[in-house]
């Protein structure tokens, strides 16, 4: 299996007059091709610094970051970045085109993709995020969720080896959030793009193959969403949320009801209650 990203014992400290704690401290992990990784953690846990270390906005103080098999340095930076798609938090800060299709075409044009190819890629990218009917719309006619979907289209049109989502849903209203999560889910099922998603949205994290929990700049937990979120005390101790059904199940256990501690979804909770009901 090809490794897309490899972090080896990476630390990073922001320059400061006073001695301060590193923002990222001795973090190692790798992302394989086709994998979907969610990085979760509270504000200030080092998640965003890690994104900047992977896209080469920052270089590690210690350790190394490898992208697509090459160590990330000033020299390899541009080559690596051309194979990296990013979607940021604020839908209004990343719309550069005058229309939806111009925006998706922007990077393709910059990279000298032939016209025929470009048209085809723009349309297929917009199709993947279900924004085809908006090709000629201007950005101010779009909702936040729609803008984020266009941003995702712009990123995947470049056919990147790695797509980084940096809190892509955190500034959206519930409807926009749902749209984007649905888009991501479709993308997950229909393409083999490798995704690194930095988020504190649980639903987004539950989409991942593997979740990495950051705390105080360190890797705190790593595993499948089910395994990671089973560490109830640790997760809530960090100030992170658990799925709603898991919270209710824990409250029920605290009140003496015999429901399993593995419950994550509403369906599982209802099933457990149903079992109790039939045993009554």
């Amino acid at each position: 299996m090809t490794t897309v990203v490899r972090l080896q014992d990476v630390s990073f400290t922001y320059p400061s007059e006073e001695p301060i704690k590193p923002a990222v401290s001795h973090v190692s992990y790798s992302v394989n091709q086709g994998e979907w990784i969610a990085i979760v953690g509270h504000n200030g846990s080092g998640k965003s610094t890690m994104a900047k270390l992977i896209n080469g906005l920052l270089f590690p103080s210690e350790g190394s970051v490898e992208l697509f098999g090459h160590r990330l340095t000033e020299e390899t930076l541009w080559e690596s970045r051309s194979q990296l798609g990013m979607v940021f938090q604020n839908p209004d800060n990343q719309f550069v085109g005058a229309t939806v299709q111009d925006d998706v075409a922007f990077a393709l044009e910059n990279n000298g993709i032939p016209y025929e190819d470009m048209v085809q890629r723009v349309h297929s990218a917009l199709q993947q995020v279900q924004m085809s009917e908006f090709v000629n719309q201007e950005p101010h006619h779009l909702s936040g969720g729609q803008k984020q979907r266009v941003a995702i289209a712009g990123a995947i049109a470049m056919q990147p080896k790695l797509l980084i989502l940096d809190e892509a849903t955190s500034m959206l209203d519930p409807q926009g959030r749902r749209e984007v999560i649905q888009t991501l889910q479709t993308l997950r099922e229909t393409s083999d793009v490798t995704v690194l998603s930095i988020t504190h949205d649980l639903e987004e994290a539950m989409l991942a193959d593997r979740v990495i929990v950051m705390n105080g700049g360190e890797k705190f937990l790593e595993g499948s969403p089910q395994d990671v979120f089973a560490n109830r005390e640790q997760i809530t101790g960090l100030g992170l949320d658990l799925p709603f059904a898991a919270n209710v199940a824990a409250l029920l256990r605290a009140r003496g009801l015999d429901v399993p501690s593995t419950i994550m979804s509403e369906q599982e909770l209802v099933d457990a209650l149903w079992t109790l009901n039939s045993n009554k």
Partner: peptide, 11 residues
């Protein structure tokens, strides 16, 4: 509130 109500229903 919900957990309280469910617990008393099923206890």
């Amino acid at each position: 509130e919900l957990a309280e109500a469910l617990a008393s229903y099923w206890t």
